[in-house]
Amino acid sequence: MNAAALARSRSAPILLGIATLAAFIALMQVLVETGLLNRFIVPPPSDVALAFERVIMEEHILARFLLTMQECVSCAVLLAVFGISIGTLLHKVNILRLATETWVAAAAAAPTVLMYPLFMVIFGRSATTIVMMGFVAGLPAVILKTIEGLSGTKRVLMNVGMSFKLTPWQMFWKIQFPSALPTIFTGFKLGLIFALINVVGVEFLINFGGLGQLINDLAERYDLAGTYAAICFVILVSVCFFVVVEWFERWLTRAA
């Protein structure tokens, strides 16, 4: 297979990714074994691999994994409903957009995780606090990219809609929204990244359920191999989410 055919192959990126990951793991193993990396800070990947069975069997990993997934799904639903709706509202009402867009952009850069004591006062030490923290962290990215996507609709498409005498509602659903979908999904994925970081981070901080609490427990026991194994499950949550979101994006784009 020549280079051009390999570049067009769907399996090539997957194989390259797997090979890169394997090379990175092998490099880390060599660096730890040779003493260039302190094994009391970074455990050998072989130890991490052996810790998976222990973490799965002894730490109730499935229940913790499902709890974190449930919290992330709740964040995703809230982001999709409120983020896209608010972004659409700001796009439609220009004076409201001019009054608030700068504040939304500022909120995107704010370290919202530091507000967890306030959220605990409001919602208590519960999963609701974790979900709301993730939702607030991811909301600005979804709002901003929704505004950007709707504002970036090509003028020629709008002219075509006006030539067919489409109503404002039809113009939105048949032209603006389908045109903005790629940008909206980019914002949605960014929002999910921020939400997942905050979900696991707040679980860690308030020591309440999920994979974040497991990482906290293992770190306090100085079980480095187990801690890194638990972090791998957090990465698995992220991978699962992005696979589903990309599939849904492809389906919705075709349907639109």
Rank of each mutant, 00 (worst) to 15 (best):
G124F: 08
E33Q: 14
F119R: 00
S126M: 11
T100G: 09
V32D: 07
P44L: 06
G87T: 09
N38G: 05
C72D: 08
A105Q: 15
R64D: 01
S46T: 12
R97H: 14
H91F: 15
I61F: 03
V48I: 13
A105K: 15
L62A: 11
M132R: 02
V113Q: 03
S46N: 10
L31R: 04
L66M: 13
Q70A: 12
P111H: 05
F119Y: 10
L114A: 14
A137W: 05
R97D: 08
S126A: 11
S126E: 12
R54C: 06
F135S: 03
I130K: 01
I25L: 14
Q29A: 15
V30E: 15
T128R: 04
V73N: 09
F135W: 05
T68K: 03
S85E: 10
I84L: 09
I25F: 11
A63D: 07
I95W: 15
A99V: 08
T128E: 09
G138E: 02
N38D: 15
L37P: 08
T68Y: 02
P140Q: 02
E53P: 09
V104S: 00
L50D: 12
L37R: 01
V136I: 15
P43H: 02
F65H: 02
F24T: 11
T88C: 07
V42K: 08
I56V: 13
A26M: 10
E101I: 14
P117I: 06
A51G: 12
K92Y: 09
L67V: 08
P111N: 05
V113A: 04
L37S: 02
G83M: 00
L50F: 13
L139Q: 00
Q70T: 14
V48E: 07
H91A: 10
E71V: 00
Q29M: 10
A108C: 07
D47F: 10
L96R: 02
Q29L: 09
A63V: 06
T34P: 03
V30T: 13
T88G: 06
L114F: 09
T88S: 12
M28A: 12
A137P: 01
V113G: 01
L79Q: 00
L62T: 11
